[in-house]
Simulated scan of single mutants.
Amino acid sequence: MNYANRMNDLKPSDIREVMKLIASNPGTISFAGGLPDPDLFPREEMRKATDKVMRESPHVALQYGLTLGRISLREKIAGLMKREGVEAEVENIAVTTGSQQAITIAAMMYMEEEDVIITENPSYLGAISAFKPFSTNIIGVDGDEEGMMIDQLEQAIKRTPKAKLIYVIPNFQNPTGRTWSLERRKALLEVAKRHDLIVLEDNAYGEVRFEGDRIPSIKSMDTEGRVLYFGSFSKILSPGLRVGWVCADKGIIGKYELVKNGMDLQSAELAQMQVDGFLESNDLDEHIGKINSVYKMRRDLMLKTIKKEFPEDAKYYYPKGGMFIWVELPSHMNTRELLHRAIERKVAFVPGGSFYPEGGCESSMRLNFSTMQNEKIVDGIKILGELLRESI
């Protein structure tokens, strides 16, 4: 078949491959996917919202709609942006089919062949996959507990004159769970200004906070329209609805409309109306509070069990929110090999090497704590601890 050359760079997602392994091993304790707990979905509230839509406006819900999304929903999203310190209007918002589509459209809009995208090292696997089809080069910059190391970012830019975008996840980063400090956010924006780069700020996990104060978004400090902010309802309402958004300068949103129109015409009208109806009739903060109380308990339990069961030379990070715990093991260990032994014991995780855009660090792993019940968290971590001690 005469596929486009870009297809040569596409490889199966490690996460999806792990999910296949899980599917073929029923009863597996999974720390692999970044899935919300389905027991925490607002089922009854969404049923009521759906009933109202289909009773009062079925002719609208089942019809084509605006490419940029429903105006009433975009108004509510603009209101949510104030929580991030951003004064936005409807014209600054485009509804997307999940924030994943927002990332993909940004790559389509900005990247020419051989252009460079700079990401954190490690970074969100879904973003790396979204960037790959555009024949771009992806460079990872290391970080610490405060975020991307700015001196290394400067060096990377100097080495790569074709750098165009910087993609970051400042809150509860996937996969490490780290949160950027305010100083590091300011420094990143200054670098972007100095080198005339676009910043893609992904905040998919920002509302899943267990402790600490909300830190102003990078977008809130943007005075030049060079920051695109991505948000999503997937982690706080339902990923199956596939409703996300981008907040950006009006001119950028206009370009989004052109690309999205050619991609899918619009995001699903019914799903938008379901989200809109939920926000209209329910207290979003109350719902988020219920989610966060459960996830915090599971985070604490997983950390406590890791401390007890993992070898002393396993390094792990303390996330203040989000869904993941990042573990780094001695460099001679290979977590891809460990995964196959773990699957035999009916435990799954995601090997960390796939989160590095330039490869490497095969001795790391990402553990998700949001989905499994307490007893399974304890049982699964105990099994991983046994396997790690055997390996060491």
Rank of each mutant, 00 (worst) to 15 (best):
M263D: 15
A61V: 07
P330N: 10
E84R: 10
K235L: 03
E390K: 09
R6H: 14
A268M: 01
G27D: 12
D379Y: 05
E120D: 15
K320Q: 01
Q274T: 14
A192M: 06
P26T: 09
Q100K: 03
L68V: 09
R159M: 09
L35F: 12
T28C: 11
N374P: 07
F131D: 02
V350H: 01
A4L: 10
M7V: 08
F41E: 13
P12H: 09
S354L: 00
G359K: 12
N334F: 03
I22W: 08
R226A: 07
T97L: 13
M19V: 13
E390W: 01
G289Q: 05
P216H: 03
M263F: 15
D379A: 13
A248F: 09
I215E: 06
I252W: 00
A32Q: 10
V327C: 14
L62F: 04
Y110A: 09
Q152Y: 12
N203V: 10
D39Q: 06
I218V: 15
L188F: 11
Q173I: 05
T223I: 04
L301M: 13
T371K: 02
D213R: 06
G206S: 14
N171W: 03
G27N: 06
L258C: 08
M1K: 07
E91V: 10
I157S: 04
A61F: 14
E386P: 01
M19P: 00
A106T: 15
K308G: 00
L40H: 10
Y229L: 12
Q274V: 15
G359D: 09
P38I: 14
A107W: 01
R214D: 07
A130S: 15
A342H: 08
S391R: 13
L62S: 07
I77E: 09
S24K: 14
G65Y: 05
I215N: 06
Q274N: 07
E390Y: 12
D379C: 02
F230H: 14
A32K: 05
L10G: 01
E154R: 13
M297P: 00
M108I: 11
G143D: 06
N374L: 12
G177Y: 02
M149I: 15
R178D: 15
V378Y: 03
K52Y: 11
S217T: 08
C247G: 12
I236W: 03
V60D: 07
I392N: 10
